[in-house]
Design a binder for these strands. Structure first.
Lengths: 238, 238
DNA sequence: AATATTTAATGTATAAAATACAATAAGCTA
DNA sequence: TAGCTTATTGTATTTTATACATTAAATATT
């Protein structure tokens, strides 16, 4: 009876999105392995501690990487297949990384968002941390490729009922074009600049600034900023 | 080091929605306890077996209750707080139900949908299974009240990108009013009958039948049915 | 200094979708 | 036959989405 129930380790894995130019990026780390010649990138993650819930564990992982205490994050799905730890190398790495024999491991996947310009901490357990274009992801261990794939549909849902998250992907001051390219990257479609600008104007939580680009060899674009107070009012339906 | 990582049991809990008249219902079971005088309702659920993933475990739970092999279901959130098993009675019940000492338990919550007229199996481990109006839920063990609460916002998302699920809540033949009342229950708002009817007509996967209510003391309403083939074409964008 | 190059900014006309609103139809009951 | 109840349906208005092309402003080039 005992053995038929699953007693297992539980981890969190974070899909941190970034944005630059017209491309979405995902933050990947390089795991330390027994085979240092191979470059093995994966999603940042961790086993959950006894005292934590999953949100706290994901926050901790992100804090270690970015130095930011409370990054915006969202749990989006658990991955629980018994086959997800079928790969022998993955199992070995788990033992190596956590000094424990780990038979079965489920993971709770999180979405988060970062500015691609933000300095990344080098965490002891990783060799590197880097932003990887979403369409050039390497083959990753466990089911991390599948996790990223599913995160893409999830980020759209998230944007739709909380467009605030977009501004975590952009610099504090951004141009209309930057915001439009971000929408295009997330929804994988084009938006007409004129119609897009109209929508932008309707968003009363986006404020035009009296600042413009400098040193660009074309007409300088206006900067806008996001107004959190106005956004909260907007959300509350005021 | 060992003890700081969480090794735990993992369960699934299912929020099965039903619909009748103008009310949403949730399917609850009564747990067998050492105190048979108390009626303790909870969400149907189970620990996950070694050989299963979470979807399979949720399917199994639903199959036991309804006799339906593959009910439509959707994982929607994991609940992982270390405090969720803080209640002494809940811990005792876990031991009693699973013959194991269970220190920590996380659960993966599922949404599902059933016809409220469907016969329910009485599963050995439960005393009863019953539909409970969503606004008259009793206090339930663990965080089951919170799970139901969060499931409500989730079912709206689900309807929006898969309206097919609505028809799992309705009888095979339904009237326009029934569908409208269902929308009203889910979105907790009123819809104008005329405008609603227009939308209904635009849904090319809902077919009007040449059948009408009988033995009603007012004008008989027309029946409609859902056409799965047309729906699939509709979804594929044809 | 003039011209070329590049990206930014913007308005109007049309179509589609959402909303507001009330009178008639059809079945049963009394 | 009158009364009660719920079903059915159209039109006018507003809002939102879409399609589409020219002028503006900054630097680079000649």
């Amino acid at each position: 009876m005992y053995s038929t129930f699953m007693k297992t380790y539980v981890s969190v894995d974070c899909v941190v999105f970034g944005f630059n130019k017209n491309q979405l990026y995902v933050l990947l780390v390089e795991r330390n392995t027994l085979h240092p010649e191979k470059k093995e990138l994966k999603l940042p993650g961790s086993l959950i501690y006894q005292s934590e819930d999953a949100d706290e564990a994901a926050s901790r992982v992100l804090y270690e990487l970015t130095g930011i205490r409370k990054m915006t994050l969202k749990q989006f799905k658990s991955f629980t297949s018994p086959r997800r730890t079928a790969d022998k190398d993955d199992l070995k790495w788990l033992e190596y990384a956590y000094h424990n024999k780990i038979d079965r491991l489920i993971t709770i996947a999180y979405l988060s968002l970062g500015k691609i310009t933000h300095r990344l901490n080098l965490v002891a357990k990783y060799k590197t941390a880097e932003w990887c274009p979403i369409d050039q992801l390497p083959k990753m261990p466990f089911d991390h490729n599948q996790i990223v794939e599913e995160s893409l549909t999830e980020i759209r849902n998230w944007v739709e009922n909380d467009p605030i998250i977009l501004f975590e992907l952009l610099p504090t001051k951004f141009t209309a074009t930057e915001l439009r390219l971000l929408y295009q990257a997330i929804y994988n479609r084009k938006y007409d600049p004129r119609n897009f600008h109209k929508k932008l104007m309707q968003m009363d939580y986006i404020l035009p600034l009296d600042e413009y680009q400098v040193n660009v060899s074309h007409r300088a674009a206006r900067y806008y900023k996001f107004d959190r107070v106005a956004y909260n009012k907007h959300k509350a339906g005021i």
